[in-house]
């Protein structure tokens, strides 16, 4: 049993738990960033250094930052949740989790331990532009679409002199 792996995993789980229980949006975001960091560590221990870095750079560094920008602008806050609205979803989640774990543990021969081989970034790059070049292109399309869409949705009309934030706060 790889101790750092387990520790990082536990941190990830705890941080995620805090995310969904937070009232303040910014706090929740910060907890999520912590969770992402912890996950990156576990990825390192799985030999996926490249994506661990990518996770931090892109996910924690870009996507989460986007979230933070918007939350700061909007100032989202949620009222505290009533206990009873927790119960059913938790139950459902527990059931689902139980099933998945049960399936996982069904493997004959018990848990497997194998040697981890670190995968080089070069290998990943070769795979991306080799067998998966089509997927890469499509991902590019997707990003373009997202870009254009986001721009269009957020742009101001020529005759619209309103201030987004003030409008929302009113």
């Amino acid at each position: 049993m790889n101790t750092p792996f387990v520790v990082a995993g536990v941190i990830a789980i705890a941080a995620t738990l805090m995310v969904i229980m937070q009232r303040n949006a910014v706090h929740a975001l910060l907890y999520l960033i912590v969770s992402l960091f912890a996950l990156a560590v576990t990825m390192l221990f799985l030999g996926a250094a490249f994506v661990a870095a990518l996770e931090i750079i892109v996910y924690a560094g870009a996507i989460m930052v986007l979230f933070i920008f918007v939350v700061m602008m909007i100032g989202a806050d949620s009222p505290a949740l009533r206990p009873r609205s927790w119960i059913l979803p938790s139950l459902l989640g527990a059931v689902l989790l139980g099933e998945v774990v049960y399936v996982l543990l069904q493997r004959p021969g018990g848990l497997s331990f194998s040697k981890i081989i670190a995968i080089q970034p070069k290998e990943v790059g070769m795979a991306l532009l080799g067998p998966y070049v089509l997927g890469t292109e499509i991902a590019a399309f997707l990003l373009l679409a997202g870009l254009v869409g986001a721009y269009h949705l957020a742009r101001r009309r020529a005759d619209d002199n309103t201030n987004v934030i003030e409008e929302g706060r009113r």
Binding site: L92, V95, E99
Partner: peptide, 13 residues
């Protein structure tokens, strides 16, 4: 969404 999750749980079960 809850329905989706429930469905997934049932199918898995």
């Amino acid at each position: 969404v809850a329905g989706l999750a429930l469905g997934a749980a049932i199918i898995l079960a």
